[in-house]
Amino acid sequence: MSDLPHREALPPTNEPLRIAVRRLRWFRSAFARYAAACGAGLGCGFMIDEPRLARAFANWLKAIEVQRPKDKSERRDFFEFAAGLMLRELIAEMPLAATCAPGRADPASAAAFWPEGYVCTLFCLTVHAAALEEEFHASPDLGPHISSDIADLRQWWSLRENAHHDRSFPAGFLQMLLGHQPNWSMPDVFRARLEREIG
């Protein structure tokens, strides 16, 4: 899992990705293309509710604006954190609906268990990886832990159940996939995460 699937589905842009992703036109196109690519691989189609997607996008930008750190040295950490906020908003609005069961997915896989949540999560990881590479010439830590976490259905069951009761949970889930130990009491508060990691 060190290579995220369907990265080529992200549309080209003349702007830096960190700018393009904050334009609804690019975000919408990227999400649609990514869902279509995943759907082709999984053997199912996805319907996109565009008003919900726009709401998730707007709420994501508002959340970023509120928490953006002034200290430039925290920029890279915040990049990663912003991907978790994106997942939080996508899961809360859930703009995707699979049109059928994913026939080509392993029945015991996360993609078969919750195709919509799986695609949203991989979309956030993929956009994050592409932006990180462009901005910092670095790749996210997608080592062996991510393979085991993504393969572990208990994690996805936990995500689906907990996100239902606590909208901040997906932000922690994404940080966990990226190799961090989230502050589960406030997984969507940047300052709380930073203080925990600094100790």
Partner: peptide, 9 residues
């Protein structure tokens, strides 16, 4: 996109 964004706002 502007219409969708305005609706969200």
């Amino acid at each position: 996109a502007a219409a969708d964004l305005a609706r969200a706002l």
